[in-house]
Write a protein that binds this DNA or RNA. Structure first.
Length: 816
DNA sequence: AGCACGCCGACT
DNA sequence: GTCGGCGTGCTC
């Protein structure tokens, strides 16, 4: 009889792996702990997650042993691993991929292999070696630490193998824990030494004697300071007393002080000073009522909070959060994106101080680990975070709140697991049997539908402040261009308004949906468009850095001055992004101070907060920017917002295009707080001014919803069907197109009535892979997991048939 | 997906 | 004898 553990490994393989458990490890091994296991031919050490433990007497002789158990206690609860499993099944990816995504990088321990000389090197006769071998020896002795990988890059496998055979070099593996605590040095008075030297046990007497015993003024300063502040942090002391490190060094040499190193928290409290707005008594009692309703519903179901509170909603959230913290529960507050300057973060910090964790993409790997542990140890009662915060190891989660529920960023499509974090959070909260609140000012069609059929509860809090028609100005670009009324990219109205704002010393904001200078470079001589070498998409010109970039794969190259096809220098920069608009603004609005705000030129928190300050100080007249500008809209000297191409999203090939555009525009209206501030204006420039989406802005949400839901039903789109998007990829276009028939036969041998396609996707080649796609529309009531299994089986059979390992499949469940 | 292994052709 | 390329098979 043997004990076997099922281990999840962070590799792109479908299965879990089985390992034998050493007898001495058996009492200690547990589901949810990390273990180190040897894997592959070279027995490289991987970090795995114990998923199951069982007894068996079959086939255990072929198995390897668990090398080591990493954790003292399980770092994930059973329910969390069950959730991983659900994600992997629902979104058709491996448990390993879920693990890779769920666990911070620095919690994945790996091995480093490096190459060293053996003892034999001393007795080695250099002349017996070939030139190549000698150069390897030279290379190795020139550096202290050489990884095996590096050596392999530098020299041929053959030479390395030879040297290994001759036992001149050897490969050593070393387990590396990537997490590095932040170490700071603290300074202490070395009292025992002083006591010995000056025979006293009174601290101030000792210091006085010491001071009298040194001529250095700096030494005296330090000792005096330490008398009051023993154990001060080194850097702080150096700055405070304006001394250099050598002063401390010489004191240490005398053994009068000691320097000690400690790990400290990176996660530290940031102070802020915003006056807290309080809810009215009436609002507070409303909150009570809602909480009561949420807590006392007979069966579990999500609650939709449909409101028009704008940024004030955070006050309500705080009120709810307090209730759950009182109960000793943890809270997860998911938001589509956050920056440190975020009003919400500041507000939450005011209320919850060091009980608040902030989790977003810009946090570095080490800090991530610290946050992770604070959540695990329940030091953080509440976490505001972006989607991946869903995988944090809450031990006592009591509430999930999803803000901006309608935001499509909750769906991840770039990599596996291609999951929707909103839907997954709903499922997770069901597993935990805890309440979940989906908050929105413009609920998504699908979410609202669930409230209509009674699956979700709804709390409506709508003040219905009416938007005046005069506040949203829709300008017809097409006709203005025809009549030569436009000024550059601006309608006459927008142009004049910007001048008026300047007279009022206000800032005008211009929204453009695209980064860079121009999204397309076309040769005027031969018509050649400059494409990304890896993708079927034109390169975007970024003028500021003189580079061409692919926004899909990240490819970058230096700007070109001549057409790569015909050599002509007559190149046209078609279309526009923020940079081009900025350039045009300078020529139209002379003597205006203009600033551009996009993720290209604002990489740090400080840049952004400095920028906010300069706006408040009225040092800027016009800001041009992408999505980030929504962070400015609450500032008080801003009354004009111009959207250059308001309809751009209407034209994307997606059944939700209308919904996205509507949500986007409504969101701008709320972020800008138009209904409550009559002096503000939103100018929407469009080529389709009569489009229905603009009409709906002035109408009730219900009207928009009914129209849209009817359309969805007629066209068999969600929520009336479930969609799976399927892409088959191959680096060779011909092979792909030739073989697709074989795949199709396998795919369509069942469920063919639900399968639409094949079709060429919007971008036909991405990262050097050509793609063909299918859309599968599964009617309600059909079991989608059967169909998912069928798809995966079809692809597996297809691979066996084709014997070509370059085929890949992407299964995108519930696509955007 | 990564990696080792083995076969092959090429070059000295 | 030396070297790199590429196809293949496997990972408990």
């Amino acid at each position: 009889m043997a004990y076997i553990a099922e281990i999840i490994l962070p590799v792109y393989l479908k299965n879990v792996f089985h390992y034998l458990i050493k007898e001495e490890d058996f009492p200690n091994i547990q589901k949810g702990k990390r273990v180190l296991v040897p894997f592959g031919k070279s027995n490289k050490i991987y970090t795995g997650m114990v998923y199951k433990i069982y007894e068996s007497h079959e086939h255990f002789h072929e198995l390897k042993y668990v090398h080591q158990i990493v954790d003292e206690v399980p770092i994930f609860q059973t329910v969390q691993l069950d959730f991983w499993n659900w994600v992997s099944e629902y979104y058709c990816c491996s448990l390993g991929e879920v693990m890779l995504f769920a666990l911070p990088n620095h919690l994945i321990i790996h091995t480093q292999t490096h190459v060293t000389f053996t003892e034999q090197i001393h007795s080695l006769d250099i002349n017996t070696l070939t030139d190549k071998e000698k150069s390897v020896i030279d290379f190795l002795s020139s550096k202290e630490f050489i990884s095996y990988e590096k050596l392999k890059n530098q020299f041929s496998d053959y030479v390395i193998k030879k040297l290994l055979q001759k036992q001149i070099i050897e490969i050593k593996t070393q387990v590396v824990n990537p997490y590095k605590p932040k170490i700071k040095t603290f300074i202490f008075i070395n009292y025992p030494q002083l006591e010995q030297q000056f025979s006293s046990n009174n601290p101030s007497e000792l210091i006085t004697s010491a001071i009298q015993n040194t001529k250095s003024e700096n030494h005296q300063k330090v000792l005096l300071y330490l008398l009051q502040n023993d154990g001060v942090e080194k850097q702080f002391l150096l700055n405070k007393l304006e001394i250099s490190e050598s002063v401390l060094k010489s004191l240490e040499k005398k053994s009068w002080i000691s320097l000690e190193k400690y790990a400290i928290d990176r996660v530290q409290l940031r102070n802020s000073s915003i006056i807290q707005q309080e809810l009215s008594l009436e609002e507070k009692s409303l909150c009570q009522e809602w909480i009561h309703k949420i807590e006392n519903s007979t069966s579990w179901s999500p609650t939709v909070f449909f409101h028009d509170l704008g940024n004030n909603r955070i006050q309500f959230y705080v009120e709810w959060f307090k209730k759950w913290i009182e109960k000793g529960k943890q809270i997860l507050f998911l938001v589509p994106e956050i920056a440190f300057t975020d009003k919400f973060v500041i507000e939450l910090q005011n209320h919850f101080q060091d009980q608040l964790g902030i989790y977003h993409g810009k946090i570095n790997d080490n800090e991530r680990v610290e946050i992770w542990y604070k959540v695990f140890l329940k030091e953080f009662k509440i976490v505001i975070g972006v989607r991946s915060a869903l995988f944090l190891p809450f031990t006592d989660l009591g509430l999930i709140l999803i803000d901006e529920e309608q935001d499509s960023n909750y769906k991840q499509e770039e990599k596996n697991p291609r999951m929707n974090f909103k839907d997954s959070a709903i499922y997770y909260s069901k597993m935990l049997n805890i309440p979940i609140i989906l908050a929105s000012q413009t609920p998504s069609i699908e979410t609202y539908y669930q409230t209509q059929i009674g699956k979700y509860n709804i709390i409506k809090y709508l003040k219905n402040s009416q938007l005046k028609e005069s506040q949203v100005i829709i300008k017809d670009l097409k006709s203005e261009i025809a009549l030569h009324q436009t000024v550059g990219l601006f309608s006459e109205y927008a142009y004049k308004s910007i001048f008026q704002q300047k007279l009022k010393k206000h800032v005008s904001i211009i929204f453009v949906n695209r980064k860079g200078y121009a999204p397309k470079i076309v040769c005027n001589a031969c018509g050649h468009v400059h494409f990304c070498p890896n993708c079927d998409i034109a390169l975007t010109y970024h003028k500021q850095i003189h580079k061409l970039k692919c926004h899909y794969c990240g490819f970058q190259e230096d700007n070109i001055y001549f057409c790569k096809n015909c050599g002509s220098n007559d190149l046209a920069y078609e279309g526009f992004g923020t940079e081009k608009v900025e350039e045009q603004l300078y020529s139209i609005f002379l003597n205006f101070k203009i600033a551009r705000l996009d993720s290209e030129n604002f990489k740090t928190k400080k840049q952004l907060s400095d920028f906010l300050q300069s706006i408040q100080k009225k040092e800027i007249d016009i800001v041009i920017g992408t999505q980030l500008i929504t962070k400015l809209l609450h500032l008080d000297n801003i009354e004009l917002l111009v959207v250059l191409l308001a309809d751009i999203m209407l034209h994307i090939p997606n059944f939700r295009a209308f919904e996205y555009t509507f949500q986007f525009l409504r969101q701008l209206i709320y972020d800008f707080d138009l209904p409550n501030q009559e002096n503000k204006q939103l100018v929407l420039q469009t080529r389709v001014p009569k489009h229905q989406v603009f009409e709906y802005l002035f109408k009730d949400y219900a009207e928009y919803y009914h129209e849209q839901i009817t359309l969805r039903q007629e066209l068999d789109y969600p929520p009336f069907t479930r969609l799976i998007e399927l892409q088959i990829l191959h680096p060779n276009q011909n092979i792909l197109h030739y073989s697709i028939n074989n795949f199709e036969k396998l795919l369509k041998n069942s469920y063919s009535e639900y399968i639409l396609g094949p079709s060429i996707p919007h971008v036909s080649k991405l990262k050097n892979y050509y793609r063909i796609q299918y859309l599968i529309k599964i009617p309600k009531g059909q079991n989608p997991s059967k169909i998912k299994e069928h798809i995966q089986k079809a692809f597996k059979d297809f691979l066996i048939l084709e014997k070509d390992r370059y085929f890949r499949i992407i299964i995108n469940v519930d696509p955007k």
